[in-house]
C-alpha cells in the first residue's frame, strides 16, 4: 500500500492554481503537487505518493536513527564476533 518515494525538490512553481514542484529522483525528474507541504523549500527532500508530496523529510531524524545503529554495530563487533545471519535463520 501507499508507495511513496523520496525525492529532492528542485523547482517550485504554480500550475493550474496549485503549488507544484519538480522532484528529482536520482536523475529522473517528475512533477508533484506541493499544496500539502506549504513550508517546503527548494533543495529539501519529500516523499511523493500518487503525485502528491506528503511530508518534508527530516534529515536530522534520519541521521540520528542511522547513527544509533552504526554505533551499536561497532560496539557489537568489539564485544562478540558477528554471528552469521544464517546461523540462526529458521532451519
Amino acid at each position: 500500500m501507499c508507495l511513496a518515494i523520496p525525492g529532492r525538490v528542485v523547482k517550485i512553481f504554480s500550475e493550474g492554481g496549485l503549488r507544484m514542484g519538480h522532484i528529482d529522483y536520482s536523475g529522473t525528474i517528475s512533477k508533484a503537487c506541493l499544496e500539502y507541504v506549504p513550508d517546503i523549500r527548494e533543495g529539501q527532500y519529500t516523499l511523493v505518493h500518487a503525485g502528491f508530496a506528503l511530508t518534508i523529510l527530516d534529515e536530522e531524524e534520519a541521521r540520528k536513527s542511522l547513527e544509533t545503529w552504526e554505533e551499536m554495530g561497532e560496539v557489537i563487533q568489539m564485544d562478540e564476533p558477528q554471528d552469521s545471519l544464517r546461523d540462526s535463520a529458521r532451519s
Binding site: 499544496e35 500539502y36 507541504v37 506549504p38 511530508t55 523529510l57 527530516d58 531524524e61 534520519a62 536513527s65
Partner: peptide, 13 residues
C-alpha cells in the same frame, strides 16, 4: 519512522 512521521501528521492534508 521519525524522518517522515510527526505526532500530528499532515494538518493541511
Amino acid at each position: 519512522y521519525a524522518r517522515s512521521v510527526r505526532r500530528e501528521g499532515n494538518r493541511p492534508a
